[in-house]
Design a protein around this nucleic acid. Structure first.
Length: 337
DNA sequence: GACATTTGACCGTG
DNA sequence: CACGGTCAAATGTC
């Protein structure tokens, strides 16, 4: 990360970041043995990776916004929203951020289309269901999106991309999403605006990025054509690739709240039902599961854990620690100590 | 060939 | 009239 040394966090932010990373460390550490005996190790691995990515998002988001209080993330948690986003800036609709997601018009071929103009761009009247987030991984939300437009917005350096639920036509899902890159940091921060709740509740199994590589590329390849921008893709591209690898999204939305809740509350782990030790018959699995539960319930994240998490050396051989984002975030943390 | 993205045009709102 | 959201033909990818 280019700004590694320039990142300077407040104590509170630092604590948030450390806590998140430490949680991931603990989770991976405790669950790793399960992979050896789990009947579906790949599934478990995906779950772990998802946890890791989310927590890292939290930490990275905090680091990328030194001015932002962690309370905003806590607000997101309190709001119980469904997105793997780390900083919710607003929980209200604003004219600039709310897509007019009325897609119920009849489709008319050719130039005769748009025969029901009154249905477009209804922003202020009744669309109250929009949420604005800032995140470094705008695509990781577990839903499948289809890009339907891209626009250069005045006053911004990057284009805004418009997505709607892939199942809009099939299931009438009205959910839409806008992604606006905000800066050229490494990784860059994105503003993501969601509008309308998903009604296609069965679609949350596959990460959209898995199916929409071109959409990802369109966001990372600097559609504005700024000559300097090409070099900015590396980190985000890596992260996106990892998102693609971890495409399996095992949990319902509330698990995100679980992670975010730790901002303000107990340092204890609530990591969850999302990566269950599995309901298999194996006694070995049960054994590990019991150990896991006991570990999770009883152990707050104390200094020793953080130090261990920051120690790096101990578990670098852990296959999950190949993640460059882990290294990045560790480097950030180490530089702050 | 099916499906997704790109892109320029269309159109409502302020 | 400028801006921003959406449409749909063209294009790309598998």
């Amino acid at each position: 990360m280019a700004d590694t040394e320039s990142v300077c966090l407040s104590d509170e932010q630092q604590g948030v970041a450390v806590r998140e990373v430490a949680q991931v460390y603990e989770l991976i550490k405790t669950q790793q043995p399960l992979l050896l005996v789990h009947q579906q190790p790949q599934q478990l691995a995906h779950g772990l990776l998802n946890h890791a990515m989310r927590a890292l998002n939290v930490a990275l988001s905090v680091m990328n916004q030194p001015h932002a209080s962690s309370s905003s993330a806590a607000a997101a948690a309190a709001a119980g929203h469904h997105f793997p986003v780390m900083t919710m800036i607003k929980a209200e609709s604003t004219p600039a951020n709310s897509p007019a997601a009325d897609v119920s018009d009849n489709h008319v071929a050719g130039k005769a289309r748009r025969s029901s103009p009154a249905k477009r761009r209804r922003i202020n009247c009744e669309d109250k269901s929009s949420w604005v987030y800032h995140t470094v991984v705008p695509h990781e939300d577990g839903y499948q999106w289809r890009k339907y437009g891209e626009k250069k917005i005045q006053g911004t350096h990057f284009t805004r991309s418009y997505f709607r639920c892939t199942y809009r036509d099939d299931r009438g899902c009205q959910a839409t999403k806008q992604i606006q890159q905000e800066d050229k940091n490494d990784p860059p921060m994105f503003q993501v605006t969601y509008s309308n709740e998903h009604t296609c509740t069965t679609t949350r199994l596959i990460n959209n990025t898995n199916n929409n590589p071109a959409a990802l590329h369109s966001l990372t390849a600097n559609p504005n054509g700024h000559p300097d921008d090409d070099s900015d893709d590396t980190i985000l591209t890596k992260m996106i690739k990892q998102e693609q690898q971890a495409a399996w999204l095992p949990s319902p939305p509330p698990d995100l709240t679980t992670i975010s809740n730790n901002f303000d509350e107990t340092p204890g782990l609530h990591v969850s039902q999302e990566v269950p030790p599995c309901s298999s018959n194996s006694s070995a699995i049960s054994h590990y599961a019991d150990e896991f539960d006991h570990h999770q319930m009883g152990q707050p994240l104390e200094t020793t854990v953080m130090e261990e998490a920051l120690g790096l050396g101990a578990d670098l051989d852990d296959p999950y620690f190949y993640d460059p984002n882990l290294l990045l975030i560790y480097e950030n943390l180490m530089n702050c100590y």
